[in-house]
Simulated assay, not measured.
Amino acid sequence: MSGRVETVLRKMGQSLRPISEAPKDGRWILAKSAEGLVVCHWDLDPAGLAGPTWTEANDAARGYLDEYFEGWIDPAELKLWDYATLADLLIAFVDDARAFGDERALRILKARAKAE
């Protein structure tokens, strides 16, 4: 695992499971790629795509194969966190977004900060 988010999650007792064990029944997961975590689910019949794939939305224009991911975390098994832990996780997310040049994530964060 790499990145600050994964380090914080590991400190919280969360670890990646093999992607081969990920549920392919439509449940949402946190999948780890080289670029970071992706919230996605297995779509058996995605519109506009060639066949079953991991997608980030129900009407996704692109999908991911198992080989794209290093592993996964079941969000249903994530523990409740206190504010300090949430702050650590958010700071780690922003640090990772900057480190990986994830302009989309940074735009979303900037828009949310202005909305308040």
Rank of each mutant, 00 (worst) to 15 (best):
E6D: 15
V8Q: 02
L9T: 04
R10I: 09
M12A: 14
M12S: 10
Q14E: 09
P18E: 14
P18I: 15
I19G: 03
S20N: 09
P23R: 15
D25W: 09
D25N: 15
D25I: 12
R27L: 08
W28T: 15
I29F: 04
I29P: 00
I29Y: 03
A31W: 02
K32A: 15
S33V: 08
V39W: 01
C40M: 12
C40L: 12
H41L: 09
W42M: 14
P46A: 15
G48D: 06
L49T: 12
T53W: 04
W54Y: 14
E56C: 07
E56Q: 10
N58H: 12
A60T: 11
A60F: 10
Y64E: 07
Y64F: 12
L65E: 09
D66G: 02
D66M: 03
D66R: 00
E67D: 03
G71F: 03
W72C: 02
P75Q: 06
A76M: 09
A76V: 09
E77C: 06
K79E: 13
L80V: 11
W81Q: 10
D82I: 03
Y83P: 00
Y83F: 04
A84D: 12
A84N: 08
L86Y: 11
L86D: 06
D88V: 04
L89Y: 03
L90W: 00
A92K: 01
F93W: 00
D96C: 00
A97H: 02
R98C: 08
G101E: 05
G101M: 07
E103F: 00
E103L: 05
R104A: 15
L106Q: 08
I108Q: 07
L109T: 10
K110N: 10
R112Y: 02
R112K: 05
A113T: 05
E116V: 10
